[in-house]
Design a protein around this nucleic acid. Structure first.
Lengths: 258, 258
DNA sequence: GAACGCTGTTGCACTATATGCAACAGTATC
DNA sequence: GATACTGTTGCATATAGTGCAACAGCGTTC
């Protein structure tokens, strides 16, 4: 149980509305299992802070623009998000699939920018802000492979959760996989985090040459079979190179892996 | 006073952290005027929902990536935000000033995308998610001038708040100003919302030719004097045209004003 | 190394707030 | 007109939220 129940409920309301919008006060009271008057007061407080807003006169509620203000403060903190978005847009146009940039944060791969491929508009999963497991995603494998040995040991020592039948759950297998990632300079996830979804990722280096992000593409397995990995990797490398040049990275200086 | 005090406090914490980051539990307790244990519990609940996160072991707190997830749901709802960001980036590069795209929402001009000009990085005011008054901003004047007469009458009937000595507060003067905006196809705000800050805006039309957004540039008055308005308007029209073509608007079809 | 100041956390008791209830007005459907 | 559902609000009550005290930890100063 959370520390402050009413704040917990308010946060749950925001999560409900991000998944499904709009929702009525009554529907929210049913899902939170509280009285309609409780839901109404929670919504009124969130609305006062612009975190939700009411469509029209009678219900229903949706998320408010105040969240954009708060989120802007988050992306402002991540230096590369501004450049990354532009490069995602360009890469999504050339790859014609969903493209993401993720950073390593508190033991997870966190997507900070995403451009949905034309074929996936309206149906693509939202990854921005999502904490993805390092062992089961292409971006996670890239970020982990290029991390200090201590970080890698920490992940390998923890239980490796299975998300699908294909998820790597053996520390030995993961160790070999990370070595292969370093060797060839890219990572793949073949239905390892989500059934039927494949992904490829390459590293993005910062001004000093350290890996600061991973650049990836995601698609249904039938559109991203292993036979096409090489060509997609080349496109990803080109896109990542665009971002790296914006970040001030000079290729050939202390390059490792690919 | 808000309806649910502890939710109100939690929302205030998020606002404090968006303005200044990171902040310690003790500092937050001082600013909210609550006990340190209260602040600690509020932070713990926000942290459980990824709305804040702790840097390192000992304080301090900053906003969390969970806000990006929520904000993504907001921008996903605003159809034109994806295209608008790319056009803002391009326009900011050519204008070399801050550029914004705003939509009309609940009687306000709400900025949905912003690219900060190179000269303003680090110091520019954050407009994204901000509700700007229609009578005192360039985007607001564009959006209001191109609104149905009923919406214009509603704004003109309400008290026109003065934000600076230059703000238009007379309904007659504002009516004439809106007619001029429609006539020439652009609006200006000369230190009307913020002292020393000038702004210019042009309309952005959707597929059916209706005005769906305003495209603006903002700069200190000395860099955007009235003598340079004409050239800046041309650049804005070009940028807005880029966005309009992405949105499917064909110039010459039912064009009104400029 | 000791003293001091500040930090964040947590168990506990108390009280102030959050809650549910009841009632109301409004809307949509049959 | 009857019915069902909606969102809001005054009020009383129960519970959660709060402050207090104590603790452990960290950084600074002497």
């Amino acid at each position: 149980m959370s520390e402050v129940q009413s704040v917990d409920r308010a946060a749950q309301i925001l999560q409900l509305l991000s998944a499904e919008s709009p929702l009525s006060v009554s529907e929210i009271s049913r899902r939170l299992q509280v009285h309609r008057s409780t839901a109404s007061r929670l919504m009124a407080t969130l609305e006062a802070h612009d975190l939700v807003e009411q469509e029209g006169q009678r219900g229903a509620y949706r998320l408010g623009f105040g969240l954009l203000r708060l989120a802007s403060a988050v992306t402002a903190r991540v230096d590369l998000s501004r450049d990354a978005q532009a490069c995602c847009d360009a890469a999504a146009a050339s790859l014609n699939e969903t493209v993401n940039v993720a950073i390593l944060d508190a033991g997870y791969a966190v997507t900070i920018t995403q451009t949905v491929g034309q074929r996936m508009i309206g149906v693509a999963r939202q990854y921005v802000g999502q904490r993805a497991p390092l062992h089961a995603t292409s971006t996670g494998k890239v970020l982990l492979a290029c991390s200090p040995a201590a970080e890698q040991d920490r992940v390998l020592a923890a239980p490796l959760e299975a998300f699908t039948a294909s998820t790597i759950t053996s520390p030995e297998v993961l160790t070999a996989e990370l070595a292969a990632v370093r060797e060839r300079g890219w990572a793949s996830a073949v239905a390892e985090w989500e059934e039927g979804i494949n992904a490829l990722a390459v590293p993005v280096r910062g001004p000093q040459g350290a890996v600061v992000a991973a650049f990836s593409t995601t698609a249904p397995a039938f559109r991203l079979p292993e036979s096409t990995f090489a060509e997609h990797v080349e496109m990803l490398r080109e896109a990542a190179g665009q971002l790296e040049s914006r970040l001030g990275y000079l290729p050939g200086v202390r390059a490792s892996g690919g």
